[in-house]
Amino acid sequence: MKYKAIALGIVIAAARFLYKEDKDLVVDSRTITHKNIPESFDGYKLVHVSDFHNAYFGRRSKHLLKLIEAQKGDVILMTGDIIDRRTPNLKRAVHFIGGMTRILPTYYITGNHEAHYKRWPKLKEAIVNSEMVRLDNQMIQLERNGSSINLAGINDPWFFGHEDDPFVFQRFKMQLVEMVKKAVEDDSFTILMSHRPELFSMYRTMPVDLVLSGHAHGGQIRLPFVKGLYAPHQGVLPKYTEGIHESSGTTLSISRGLGNSRFPFRVFNHPEIVVITLKKRN
């Protein structure tokens, strides 16, 4: 009987630990400094949200939305996987979309899960009918006090063809080049929203200053020294799972995301939203 009680206690403790790892939200605050950031955008706050995957954060995502609102940002940028194709819950995703747009202007790009979601037409219809702006392979300007910065968004590569198609990434790159070429002409600070961080070697060849990505889920399980253990499309011991990476004048900022997919738990890897403050470099 004693051993059964001990075993039960271990199971309860493990369940509580895993639940808290999955549901205790954190905020990662980052600062990006650049000479091309206009004076009027000095202090501008981007609330970066990624990989919702239908995660439960209270009824109608109230705990998550309360945390987003508390950041007092200027805009919400959602970098894909708002749905999970294996555990679809269209209603929860739609409630989350509505909740974000009631807080701030919200811009969105697709992730790989949208590409394989059977009810994607219904979700796309819900997005069109909402206040959330889907950046469908296009670049727009965010304006503030007479100045502007560029905001570009590209669909996940699987929207350019089946994952086994060897020309998918070639078409993806061609679209990206076409989309951001105007950034060369006006020399404006340019943000690119693109779901996959492992394509950083491609992004850094483009005229973009800041790339926002997700997809890697922080490596799912994070341990000291080795950090993230596994990420989709990067495999074991992935390089790009969180934080900031810089190369060739381009900064990549990765969100560890909110939900899970194939692997149902996070370990030492709390769900996060990222708040990025833009600062002008004098």
Score class of each variant (00 low, 15 high):
residue 118 K to L: 11
residue 31 T to G: 01
residue 262 R to D: 10
residue 88 P to A: 00
residue 22 D to G: 01
residue 162 H to C: 04
residue 93 A to K: 00
residue 173 K to S: 15
residue 161 G to K: 10
residue 111 G to A: 03
residue 108 Y to P: 00
residue 2 K to S: 06
residue 247 S to A: 15
residue 253 S to A: 15
residue 219 G to R: 02
residue 180 V to I: 08
residue 58 G to C: 11
residue 62 K to T: 10
residue 256 R to D: 14
residue 170 Q to S: 08
residue 275 V to M: 11
residue 32 I to H: 15
residue 220 Q to R: 09
residue 123 L to Y: 08
residue 242 E to P: 00
residue 194 S to Q: 11
residue 224 P to T: 13
residue 206 M to S: 06
residue 196 R to V: 03
residue 68 I to C: 01
residue 8 L to S: 03
residue 182 K to V: 12
residue 213 S to F: 12
residue 257 G to A: 12
residue 118 K to C: 00
residue 76 I to Y: 09
residue 204 R to E: 09
residue 196 R to F: 00
residue 227 K to M: 10
residue 161 G to E: 03
residue 274 V to R: 07
residue 89 N to F: 02
residue 244 I to K: 14
residue 216 A to I: 06
residue 25 L to I: 12
residue 127 I to E: 12
residue 40 S to V: 01
residue 39 E to W: 06
residue 121 P to D: 09
residue 52 F to M: 08
residue 107 Y to E: 00
residue 127 I to Q: 07
residue 259 G to L: 08
residue 31 T to L: 14
residue 123 L to E: 03
residue 225 F to R: 11
residue 189 F to C: 13
residue 55 A to I: 09
residue 61 S to C: 05
residue 75 V to A: 11
residue 236 V to D: 08
residue 63 H to E: 10
residue 133 V to Q: 07
residue 76 I to W: 00
residue 173 K to N: 06
residue 161 G to I: 05
